[in-house]
Amino acid sequence: MAETASLDALRPPRTSLRDKLLTWGLWLGFGLLLALSFKGAQIGDLPLLGRNWGNTSTYLRDYLHPDFSDRTTIAYYVREMWVTIQVAIWGTVLSIGLAIPFSLLCATNIAPAWISFPVRRAMDMLRAVNELVLGTAFLVAVGPGPLAGVLALALHNTGVLAKLFSEAVEAVDQPPIEGVRATGGTRLQEIVWGVLPQVGPLWTSFALYRFESSARSATVLGLIGAGGIGQVLFDNINSFNYARVSAIALIIIAAVILIDMTSAALRKRLV
């Protein structure tokens, strides 16, 4: 009897019919979703890519000859690129300042539900509205220029960072916090000495990621008049000056790579 029982126990687990059907159903659903969106996304027109290749290559030819001939113009582009980076720096730093208190209010292990729930929804809203949309609103408020871009980035990033920061807070170890509580520390001291040291590396890492992405977003914000390199890029596209556009694109790419590398190096050191 005992042997039969142990053989039974050794039988490898079988996937039940219900689980199998569920798996196949999920794949089927996914396939159906792709088929449904085939027309809407115009995937059927993909062959046009080959058919219109002649036009495209003429258009791209100018890109292969970036115009770096005029030094003063190039210096101007680099200055504008620097403006864009400054927009990203301030947009990120302001958002960190705002995200820290909001993230603590979002964290369910710190704030009671009646606070964390509404604050979370507010952060959802900030995240849901694209920087470009926020940017147009700020253009009206403070006029065209980099400040509108800074404010748009700051607000959108606050939504993103508050969510990321609060998730880090919710994952902290409880014993060190209890250690601080047990010495007679206040609630705020528990956060400063028990929570912040634990989340510090992750927060730094998240903030640097957001800075990288802000630098890219700040470029796009130039398109709506928020200054910097994006605005110059847009002006040149509108005047069909593709050799110049190509030069600007290269400057942007170089700057973004530089920022990513610096930020990666910082992350490695700080985290």
Binding site: P175, P176, V180, A182, G184, G194, P201
Partner: peptide, 18 residues
């Protein structure tokens, strides 16, 4: 009361990064 109470726990309760 807690200010006069020392707490020592199995998992040490220290903040690792400090």
């Amino acid at each position: 009361a807690r200010a006069d109470l020392g707490m020592v726990a199995q998992q040490f309760n220290l903040v690792g990064r400090l």
